[in-house]
Design a protein around this nucleic acid. Structure first.
Lengths: 136, 136
DNA sequence: ATAGGTGCAAATTCTTTGCAGGCAG
DNA sequence: CTGCCTGCAAAGAATTTGCACCTAT
């Protein structure tokens, strides 16, 4: 199992409090988090700017990925396939329209999309929106 | 065929220049447009704020819908099924990572997603990202 | 005539950038 | 010790709100 410490090390990133806490937060909450969520849940322990920079660093390193959202705020989630360095990602998420929580749906296979001539695909994201069991 | 004028009328909205031009712009360009795209292509003819308000009005009336995007900027496209007042939308879009254009993919059927117990779905959005034929 | 739409100013929120000091390696 | 990371200040984008005036109906 990957600990926050190991994740940072394996990406040749310095191990700092802010980075550790952010990864831990992603591991604790099993939902997609926005910058503002982190700022709050880490209790203003770190500067807003540092959180932005940390998220961008993690994005570049493929430690996290963006989760599509229609609310305007960008959300992020840990990449599950840390080691798999294929860049052919497929993400399926469910967003509850009441509580706003976005969770990763496992075991859903996306259709084989037939693109028009000359188009090539690199990534597919499916966002399902509706109501979750807690909010029903 | 629905003209901009008729679209506005059928939604009980006043027919104004700004609204007409924005709908016409969506009909001309067959790609998803962001607020900034409209501001530019309409040649600063209308106030930035008015465009925001028009887009929000159109969203409420289901004249346009949000198109998912990972770039931060919100994009919109005309709803094709104007009259179909089922709110079980399915949108499939392709975004080119080079030119940034997002187009609607027709004739792609989404998989039947089996949600966990207690979850209900209302909308599905699939975003495929890659390279389009022009940018290849 | 009047409700609804627009433009302008300004407030808010979100995100990035520059720089100086601090800490991990 | 050295370069990367952080915090603070400030700049810059994106979006919303308030208010007075205008116009489609």
């Amino acid at each position: 199992m990957n600990t926050p410490h190991i994740i940072l090390k394996s990406h040749k990133l310095r191990v700092t409090d802010c980075r550790l806490e952010i990864i831990e937060e992603f591991l604790r909450k099993q939902v997609a988090l926005a910058h503002s969520d982190l700022e709050e849940s880490l209790n203003k322990q770190f500067d807003r700017v540092t959180i932005y920079r940390t998220l961008n660093t993690f994005l570049e390193q493929d430690i996290i990925h963006k989760v599509l959202d229609d609310s305007g705020s960008t959300k992020y989630a840990l990449c599950s396939h840390e080691d798999a360095h294929d860049h052919d990602h497929e993400h399926v998420h469910f967003k509850c329209e009441i509580c706003g929580e976005t969770t990763c749906l496992e075991n859903i296979s996306l259709p084989v999309v037939k693109l028009p001539e000359g188009f090539s695909k690199r990534e597919m994201n499916l966002l399902v929106q509706g109501i979750c069991d807690k909010c029903r």
